[in-house]
Amino acid sequence: MEQRESGESLRTVLVAGAANLTIALAKLVAGLIGGSAAMLSEAAHSAADTVTELLLLVAVRGAERPADRRHPFGHGKAGFFWAMTAAVATLVGGAGFSITHGLHEISHGEELSNLLPSYIVLAVAFGMEAVSFAKAYSQLRSQAERYRVHPVRLVRVTSDTALKAVLFEDAAALVGLIIAAAGLAGSQMTGSALWDGAASIAIGLLLVVVAVTLIRSNLSLLIGQAAPARIENGIRAVLLSQPEVEDVVELLTMMIGPGSILVAAKIDFRDEASAAGVEIACDEVDQRLRERFPGVSQVFLDPTPTRRR
Rank of each mutant, 00 (worst) to 15 (best):
L140E: 00
E145P: 00
R230T: 11
I178Q: 03
L205G: 01
V131M: 12
S138P: 09
E244W: 05
P243T: 14
L219K: 14
F168S: 15
M128R: 04
S220R: 12
R148M: 14
Q242N: 05
I203V: 14
L177V: 13
S159K: 03
T161P: 04
S200K: 06
V245N: 08
R156I: 10
V155G: 11
L222P: 11
L140C: 02
R236T: 06
G197Y: 06
G224A: 00
W195I: 07
P243S: 12
I179E: 06
D170W: 01
A226I: 02
L219Y: 14
L221D: 02
G204L: 10
A199I: 10
L222M: 10
G204P: 09
L154V: 01
G204N: 11
K135V: 12
S132E: 03
S187Q: 05
M128Y: 08
N233R: 15
Q188F: 12
A211F: 06
Q188W: 12
S159Q: 05
I178S: 13
S241A: 14
A198E: 08
G186M: 00
L163Y: 02
V121K: 06
A229W: 07
G204M: 11
I178F: 11
A172G: 11
V210D: 04
V209K: 14
A162N: 11
A227N: 08
I223H: 09
E145G: 10
W195V: 04
F126A: 09
I231W: 09
L207N: 03
G191S: 13
S132Y: 01
V157L: 13
A185E: 15
L206C: 09
S220Q: 15
G186N: 02
G186F: 01
S241M: 09
R148I: 08
G197K: 08
V124W: 04
A237W: 00
Q242H: 10
P151C: 03
G204Q: 11
P228M: 03
R230G: 09
P243E: 12
I201V: 07
G127H: 05
V131I: 14
A173C: 07
V121M: 02
I231P: 09
A130E: 03
A134E: 13
L184E: 00
L140D: 02
P151V: 04
E129R: 01
A171I: 03
A229R: 13
P228C: 04
Q188D: 04
A173S: 10
A173I: 08
Y119E: 09
A198W: 02
S192K: 07
Y147Q: 13
A199V: 09
I178W: 07
A181P: 02
M189W: 13
R153F: 10
I203G: 07
A134H: 14
A136Y: 02
L221Q: 02
A130N: 06
L240K: 06
A173V: 06
E232L: 04
A123F: 11
A198Y: 04
L174I: 15
E244I: 05
L221G: 09
L219E: 10
R236Q: 10
V157D: 12
R148L: 14
A182P: 05
S200N: 08
D196F: 00
N218Y: 10
L206F: 08
